[in-house]
Amino acid sequence: MNEREMLEKRISKLCKYLGRSPWVFHVNSGSCNGCDIEIIAALTPRYDAERFGVKLVGTPRHADILLVTGPVTDQSLERVKLIYEQTPDPKVVVAVGACPTGGSVFFESPFTNAPLDKHIPVDVFVPGCPPRPEAILYGVVLGLEKLIKKIEGEKE
């Protein structure tokens, strides 16, 4: 069984445990949109995350997982914090790409505020410029496992 099938088995097991599939909301904090296109390509029929029920929703109030891209620019800082507060608990934040991790090529500028860790708590970092769609799916899987731990932690 190759890597891809193992990944798929893990995702379906996690979805069954959770009871429903995770819904994802995507936030762009000033990126060049390379990572955003890879996120959407992860939902098209080639890599196909939609068959597990993972889908992009239009409002953060329905979301379980937040995907954030971009070096956090000055004018988008407020939006990112606002969206973080609007998402209901329990939630998981995944930082996609090299920009929210450490700034990438924009690390020294008067207008960017990378890394994302300084402003909202982050659970998973996915490096790459841009990361492959399979890598983003793997990051979402790791986020799902953390989400399950958080839900179990609440039940106790």
Binding site: G30, T73, D74, Q75, S76, V105, F106, E108, F111, T112
Partner: peptide, 14 residues
């Protein structure tokens, strides 16, 4: 405009 202002020309001077 201005949402994506990252200061690329300023960075390019260095």
């Amino acid at each position: 405009l201005g949402y994506n202002l990252r200061g690329v020309e300023w960075i390019g001077m260095r």
